[in-house]
Design a protein around this nucleic acid. Structure first.
Length: 643
RNA sequence: GCUGGCGUAGCUCAAUCGGCAGAGCAGCGGUUUUGUAAACCGCAGGUUGGAGGUUCGAUUCCUCUCGCCAGCUCCA
């Protein structure tokens, strides 16, 4: 039997050897940092016996697959600790997550913080015991009998859902056994440091009709330093939380008296929003969009025609009755844009038509899902609807992609993940429509050399879509942008244009949002920058501060000059020490602090201090204006289409 | 909506077993005229989220309700 490492010559070993032995034979030194392997692309235990030629790849904590094995064994250790301490707890499922893991238990009472301490201590003890982890295979009936004897009802339910005739595996360490596909670490001692994070309720199999289980989250790392780095990152996420920063910087508030999920934009938040919106409008007009406005309510009939009453009612505010007819607060903008399209006869020469609107919509979201600015009940979409001929889809989508990346990059996002979602089970429309639209989306992605993931069946019920996720400064992904092809609404509203042949044809609609919702995007921006907005977005770009009352007139004059040049500047003339004024400006994340004492008045300069302490020396007001002008043009904010 | 936790001054947080609601910051008044992240003194600030109950007495215990937080489900 031949085994080999990737891209390396193969070596002969005896059939039936373990993966571990094969790796040793290949000259891999089997230290404790190697704890699993990939065999012909499949992740397996080191103790797995090889029966055919194989390409091997040792797995360590440095790969996503390796971490997955490591965390999976960690959650088994946690489950063992729970079972040892609370034998009546029932096992359910416990997967690894990206940098943590959880296990769901069914237990007669809730776990207390004291319980968690005990569980954590017991888990560390299990790690110390260094129990060998072994795999065992059962037939389906054996597995059912086995878990029945251990009283694990949820496991039996899981097994009963598995296909007949295939072996079912379980992993054991000491007295603990869990139904599990694996693979796992060779022994519990391979886990370095182990920490429980928090608990939460979770439905059995994620279905809210099922009983609520108790989920315990934890994480594990090879070393304490790595755990500490991870915990520091969690702290940083907390520090940047937009709800906290939004309050500290006096940007927004959400108040009981007004209602959950309804946002008040305070002057500083509103300043940033205005800058975002102005930029958005300017760029849309440049890129061939026409901007429109639409009302916040419409007759319910409109929403019946659009299908929202049938497909979206759960997310809509209740309709209101007025003069005998019903009106609906808008959950989306599309029907209005459609009605603008329909307001007169269209020629094929008019297409594509691009209507854009910063349209405020209201959606009923269940109380439990509301979350700061990221999930609200009233929000403004940066919406647009493109009406085009079938042969224009690809070009239009390509243009939208260019435009989207350009807008997102302008706000400082550099990394993206793109998903192409295809026809879901429940959907409307002819197959050839779906095929045409899907291939147009794919062609557009390929024409821009954009690598993407396929999300089969993830499309909207009316058409396929491209979703773009942005990565923020902390490496978290957020979905904002979406581009969706729609042939359902043109049909529902009987849209048409007159073609070259003089006959009526149906246009295709493309829905797209770039930031998604201004509220949500703003929340993400706050966290991305930790409140320290780039100069072009900062609500106050410079604070000019006096050392004593002597410089009052001078400072006021400098502020006036900055304002006249179009910058957002404020004076701090208070009777306070300069250290105090600097501290306040730092806390407010003002990009530039301009200090003027008698020396600066003499020389007609200001002493320039950058945010977070950098000393930029003395400058004339003209010098400061140059500096600010340079600052606000970064990053480059001009779009160039690549075709 | 569901499970669990939490609501005390504008903000961040105290208050032993049910026994007179308190501190720092912010605010206001004064003193200080100050050189790169917090000067000093004083004053004021509360129906303890709301309603009901138990009790001589409730921030504290109970019921209901509103909201927030961690998740689940859902999603821009």
């Amino acid at each position: 039997m031949k085994v080999a490492l990737k891209d390396r010559p193969s070596v002969d070993v005896q059939a039936g050897q373990t993966v571990e032995a094969a790796l040793s034979a290949l000259g891999v030194s089997m230290s404790a940092d190697i704890f699993a392997a990939k065999v012909n692309g499949q992740v397996v235990d080191l103790s797995r016996h090889l029966s055919e030629d194989a390409t091997l790849e040792p797995l360590r904590f440095d790969s996503a697959e390796g971490r997955d094995v490591y965390r999976h064994s960690s959650t088994h250790i946690m489950a063992q600790a729970v079972k040892e301490l609370f034998p009546s707890a029932q096992l359910t499922i416990g997967p690894a997550l990206e940098d943590s893991f959880f296990y769901d238990f069914s237990f007669e009472r809730t776990f207390t913080p004291e319980d968690l301490e005990k569980i954590e201590a017991r888990a560390s003890d299990i790690i110390k015991r260094n129990l060998t982890i072994t795999r065992r295979e059962f037939t389906k009936q054996e597995a059912i009998d086995f878990f029945k004897s251990r009283g694990e009802a949820y496991k039996i339910e899981l097994i009963q859902g598995f296909p007949d005739g295939e072996p079912i595996s379980a992993y054991m360490q000491g007295d603990f056994v869990d139904l599990c596909r694996g693979p796992h670490l060779p022994a519990t001692g391979y886990v370095g440091v182990f920490k429980l994070l928090n608990t939460a309720g979770a439905y059995w199999r994620g279905d809210e009709r099922n009983p609520m289980l108790q989920r315990i989250y934890g994480t594990s790392f090879p070393t304490k330093a790595e755990l500490d780095a991870h915990l520091a990152r969690l702290e940083e996420i907390k520090r940047r939380d937009h709800r906290k920063v939004g309050k500290e910087l006096d940007l927004i508030s959400i108040q009981d008296e007004i209602g959950p999920g309804l946002v008040l934009w305070h002057p500083k938040g509103a300043t940033i929003r205005l800058l975002i919106e102005n930029f958005w409008r300017e760029q849309h007009i440049k890129d061939g969009y026409e901007l429109v406005y639409s009302p916040h309510v419409a007759r319910l009939d409109l929403w019946k025609t659009s299908g929202h009453v049938d497909y979206y009612r759960d997310n809509m505010f209740a309709a209101m009755k007025l003069e005998g007819s019903e009106y609906q607060l808008k959950p989306m903008n599309c029907p209005y844009h459609i009605m603008i399209y329909k307001s007169h006869l269209r020629s094929y020469r008019d297409l594509p038509i691009r209507y854009g609107e910063l349209g405020t919509v209201y959606r009923y979201e269940r109380t439990g899902v509301l979350h700061g600015l990221l999930r609200v009940r009233g929000f403004t979409q940066d919406d647009a609807h493109l009406f085009c001929r079938p042969d224009q889809i690809e070009t239009e989508v390509s243009r939208v992609l260019d435009f989207t990346f350009f807008i997102l990059q302008s706000f400082g996002f550099a990394e993206f993940e793109v998903f192409l979602s295809t026809r879901p089970k429940e959907s409307v429309g002819a197959d050839e429509h779906w095929a045409l639209a899907t291939s147009a989306l794919e062609a557009a992605l390929k024409s821009r050399n954009i690598s993407f993931h396929l999300d089969p069946g993830g499309g909207a019920f009316y058409g396929p879509k491209i979703d773009i996720k942005i990565k923020d400064a902390l490496g978290r992904s957020w979905q904002c942008s979406t581009v969706q092809v729609d042939f359902n609404n043109p049909e529902r509203f009987e849209l048409s244009y007159i073609g070259e042949d003089g006959k009526a044809h149906q246009p295709i609609m493309i829905h797209r949002a770039l930031m998604g919702s201004i509220e949500r995007f703003f929340g993400i921006l706050i966290e991305h920058y930790g409140g320290a907005f780039p100069t072009w977005l900062a609500p106050v770009q410079a604070t000019v501060m006096s050392i004593t009352d002597n410089q009052r007139d001078y400072v006021s004059a400098v502020v006036a000059q900055l304002k006249a040049a179009g910058f957002r500047a404020e004076a701090d003339l208070r009777n306070e020490k300069i250290g105090f004024k600097i501290r306040e400006a730092e806390k407010a994340k003002v990009p530039f602090m301009l200090v003027a004492g008698d020396r600066e008045v003499q020389g007609g300069t200001v002493s320039v201090r950058g945010r977070s302490g950098s000393n930029l020396g003395s400058m004339t007001v003209a010098g400061v204006l140059d500096l600010l002008r340079t600052e606000i043009t970064r990053p480059q904010r001009e779009l160039q289409h690549t075709h």
